[in-house]
Each structure stands twice: as structure tokens, then as C-alpha cells.
Amino acid sequence: MEKTLKKGRPDIAMSSFSFLFAEMLNYFHSRASSSDELEGRLQAAGERLGLKVLELMTYREKANRKDTLESFLSFISNNVWRMLFGRPADGLQRIPADNSYMILESVPITNRYIEAGQLNPATFITGIIIGMLRAAGFNNPVETHVWKKDESTNETTNVYLVKSK
């Protein structure tokens, strides 16, 4: 592998991504017979991306091999998020009751400017997390949820819930 990932400033207009992402959604939509299938395909596309990201980042940051699930999720929500989205995720929390983890993100890039009806476009990002976890040898299931931040406002946040196996 000759190329390494750049670590610069955001270098292209967001609409490039948004329009490309919308075309991918359209394509899946035209071929999927149910919303479950559509969601599954979107997630699978994210998984491909996740695998590739880990391949490239471990190449660049060999010293950063992560061993525990918690440290790996911290690597994802900081380093990977910065590389892909230009900033860290809004939070990483452990839920002691069942030993699961939540990565929090108020406005995922996939959900800006994109109307997708019932489908949560951030399922793509869930796929990225799943792909990375799998590539690193963790096979924890990951779910996407949308939570209200506060009952008094309608503000929501996306929750990528990484469940214990």
C-alpha cells in the first residue's frame, strides 16, 4: 500500500458527499423490495467502508493497535471519526447494566440535507462501525437508535449502540 490517508482540513464541499450518498440510497431503493432490505444493504455498504478504513488506519498507525473493546471504540469515536468526519463523535459512554457502549452523534453527516422517509441514513455509519469491529476481531452487534436529548425539546441524537456479545 503506497498511499496513506491524509490528515488535513476538510477539502471538498459537503454536497459532493451528500449527492453521492443520495444516489447510493436511490440505487438501493430501486432494487430493495422492503425497508429491511434497504436498511440491510445500506449497512452492508458501510461495513465495506469500515473494513477499508481499518486496513488503512492500522497501516498508518501501527502503534495504535487496540486490544479491549473500550479502547477500540475510543479509537473509532476519536481517530476514525476525525479522519472521516473532521471531528470526534459527540460522546462514548458505557452502560454498566449490560456492559454495552453508546457512541453519540447529534447530526450525522448522512442525515444532513437528506430525506429518507422511514429509513435512518445513519445506518450507513452503523455499518462502518460494524465493519471496523469485525475487522478487528470483535463481533459485537451494533444498533442505530434515535433518542430525544431532552423531553422538553425535540432535539434528537443518534445513538450507535454496541451491545455486548
Partner: peptide, 27 residues
């Protein structure tokens, strides 16, 4: 114009495109 637009890293674009091409090749 660029300075006024919302921006992203080209990596997410390039990699999403890669995932699309791979998906199409399979489909």
C-alpha cells in the same frame, strides 16, 4: 465560494464511492 460552503474530508467521499463501485460489481 468554497470558504462559504459546508465541507467534508475527501476521504469519506472517496471511500463511499469505493463501496458503491464494489456493490455494483457484485450486483
Amino acid at each position: 465560494t468554497f470558504s462559504k460552503l459546508d465541507k467534508v474530508h475527501s476521504e469519506i467521499f472517496t471511500m463511499t464511492y469505493g463501496a458503491i463501485v464494489t456493490t455494483l460489481v457484485e450486483d
